[in-house]
Write a protein that binds this DNA or RNA. Structure first.
Lengths: 198, 198
DNA sequence: TCTCCTGATTACAGTAACTGTAATGGAGTT
DNA sequence: AACTCCATTACAGTTACTGTAATCAGGAGA
């Protein structure tokens, strides 16, 4: 028998999410979270580098998955398609935990402090993808632009995914956003807006 | 004669930048900054809501300028062009303070804590632009995608601008990035378009 | 069984970021 | 001269985070 209850980090995350939902991020102290998980404040900081990280723990491994998918893409694939395929590789992962992802996503949307952290994480993924693209032979400028644009597509696609009443996959929404982007870059929105007067 | 030395906020910003450059962000306390500016810690927090904001003070007015430029764009202009024109409207502003902007930009690049804040600011601009695009008749999806993609272009263009040995304008680099994006979205190989932006 | 070692947890003390509130005191006004 | 204004300050308090040493159940080896 284990000396302590197992899954301390997981318990802390669950406690944190529950408290953030009840009282909000600012009104929840790290001590509150730890107590709710049956631990002490110091133990919280042994598991997470700071209060925000409690919602971003799995992200390192996540970056790894995405980078791996990018590396595995066919040599001939164009940069933007590599990036989108890489993000799409996480689709199944999200599919399995749609409720959790939605809950988490709502918390982040409601708290600027958490948005800050999420944006940095996304940018670090974009940076990693940029490097992969360069290794695949793209110019630095092309790689950066493709990775950054892919990030834009992901933000839009992910938002659609969380809102989608039909529960279509993230990969689906990424493809949709990518297609729409083609029209936008050419100056013709996908909806082919007919605002001849207004 | 004024009771206190004028421009307290400005002095605090200058002191902060100098100290961040000397010791780094983490090793600089708010007390240090205030003392260097001839003020107290409490006064610092009267001027800035938190330690990071000392480098992001002018940003509200900045958003205003950008939004205004977006509203002023010709009715027929396509969404992405509206966004880029809006960002390009800040070109002169940056041109006048290129040294300051570079210095600030280097600090942000060197400190993740500051990157967090900058990303949120950029996203708030993107959100504001999204709203403007919707008011101009774009669909919600098109508006979001155009604003987000514009953000990607800005990041890339701005980076080129800070690195540019030839001191070409931000507007120039935005146009270059936009042109390059067209090729990327179509899946063309990197070198197909002459890009003199590095 | 006894002992040593491991490692997650904890106790405790300390720094620094912020907040709320009330007081200060020179400058402009009456 | 009395009076108001308000940027600044003093002071006390909370909370995020850090460094360090102590605890102590269980596994490994003797």
């Amino acid at each position: 028998m284990a000396r302590w209850e197992p899954n301390a980090a997981e318990r802390l995350t669950e406690a944190a999410m529950a408290l953030f939902e009840e009282r909000g991020y600012a009104k929840t102290t790290v001590g509150d979270i730890a107590t709710r998980a049956g631990l002490t404040e110091r133990t919280f900081f042994n598991h997470f580098s700071d209060k925000r990280e409690v919602l971003f723990a799995g992200s390192e491994q996540f970056v790894g998955t995405i980078v791996e998918a990018a590396r595995a893409a066919p040599k001939a694939e164009a940069p933007l398609d590599v990036v989108i395929a890489a993000y799409a590789s996480t689709s199944d992962f999200f599919e399995e935990r749609r409720p959790f992802a939605r809950r988490r996503s709502a918390l982040i949307a409601a708290h600027p402090e958490l948005q800050e952290r999420e944006l940095v994480k996304m940018m670090s993924v974009a940076a990693a993808l940029t490097e992969v693209l360069v290794q695949r032979g793209a110019s630095a400028a092309t790689a950066t632009l493709a990775a950054q644009t892919g990030g834009a597509i992901l933000r839009v696609g992910f938002e659609q995914w969380t809102r989608d009443a039909k529960d279509r996959s993230l990969a689906f929404h990424l493809r949709a956003a990518r297609r729409q982007l083609e029209g936008i870059v050419r100056g013709r929105p996908a909806g082919s807006r007919r605002s001849s007067t207004s």
